[in-house]
């Protein structure tokens, strides 16, 4: 990723499949995310949204299929979370983003530490940077929270703030938010939403996953609907009202129920 050739898509997943043992979690997944597009990924619990996220962020290796980042094919045999970071992909998970018993400054840099010789961490520099992120990017002030505080002392909103601040600091091309608003207060949810708006304004791309359909509707340019490991809908926001989208999802669920019976 040395030079920057013009590319249309931040991300393309082509015919991605994922098996856990004999069980197919994902089948024939084709998803594109434009360079400056917010894609809302919607679907029931267990539909496969998080599995899609984990494949594109290098946590899981797909069983088959192809992945393109910024127009370039990714070598899946060597793809990893570190590589995804290098390619400018950042992820904010619902709850699995932070080490509870670890200091905040460690949580900012774990997995890509600033090191001196022999892999020893440059603690001073990491703390300085973490402090800067907290003050300038996240805007934590005078709350009795320092870079030395343990994550376990933070509220849900503050935790999400840390995870988002981390994603912002590393200047991602594509930010993935996997149910970032679960267990947040309304005010905190609003902060997450405004963060997604900022991604759009900053010219970057985003994959946004949430159960709160009106939140997704507010921020997304396009909706990709996943059901039982398959993409079953791909709708532009301009083609649908919130009510219609809601009805589509409900109708879809009912339709499936009818089929089962």
């Amino acid at each position: 990723m040395t030079e920057h050739r013009p590319h249309e898509f931040a991300l393309q997943m082509v015919n991605i499949e994922k098996y856990f043992g004999p069980v197919a979690a994902l089948r024939n997944i084709n998803i594109q995310v434009g360079r400056n597009e917010i894609v809302g990924l919607i679907g029931d619990n267990g539909a496969g949204k998080s599995t899609i996220v984990k494949i594109l962020t290098g946590v899981y290796r797909p069983s088959s299929g192809e992945l393109y980042i910024a127009g370039r094919k990714v070598d899946l045999s060597t793809y990893s979370v570190r590589k995804a970071h290098e390619y400018g992909i950042e992820t904010v998970y619902q709850d699995k983003s932070l080490g509870e018993k670890q200091a905040l400054w460690r949580n900012f840099f774990v997995g890509r530490q600033i090191t001196r010789r022999f892999g020893f961490i440059d603690v001073k520099k990491e703390k300085e940077l973490a402090n800067e992120i907290m003050l300038n990017t996240i805007g934590f002030r005078g709350r009795g929270i320092t870079v030395d505080s343990k994550v376990s002392k933070l509220s849900g909103g503050e935790r999400q703030g840390i995870a988002i601040g981390r994603a912002m600091h590393f200047e991602a091309e594509l930010i993935v938010l996997d149910e970032p608003t679960v267990a947040l207060s309304l005010k905190e949810v609003q902060k997450v939403i405004s963060f997604v708006h900022k991604i759009k304004e900053g010219g970057k791309a985003c994959v946004y996953i949430s159960h709160a359909i009106h939140d997704v509707y507010e921020v997304a340019d396009r909706f990709v609907i996943v059901d039982r490991g398959e993409v079953v809908g791909n709708i532009r926001r301009s083609d649908v009202t919130l009510k219609e989208l809601d009805e589509f999802l409900l109708g879809y669920a009912h339709g499936l129920k009818d089929k089962q019976e």
């Binding site: 570190r82 699995k96 509870e100 997995g111």
Partner: peptide, 13 residues
Amino acid sequence: FIGDNADVARVMG
């Protein structure tokens, strides 16, 4: 981090 939560450690690279 692994002792804290291995899943977190994994998604953090």
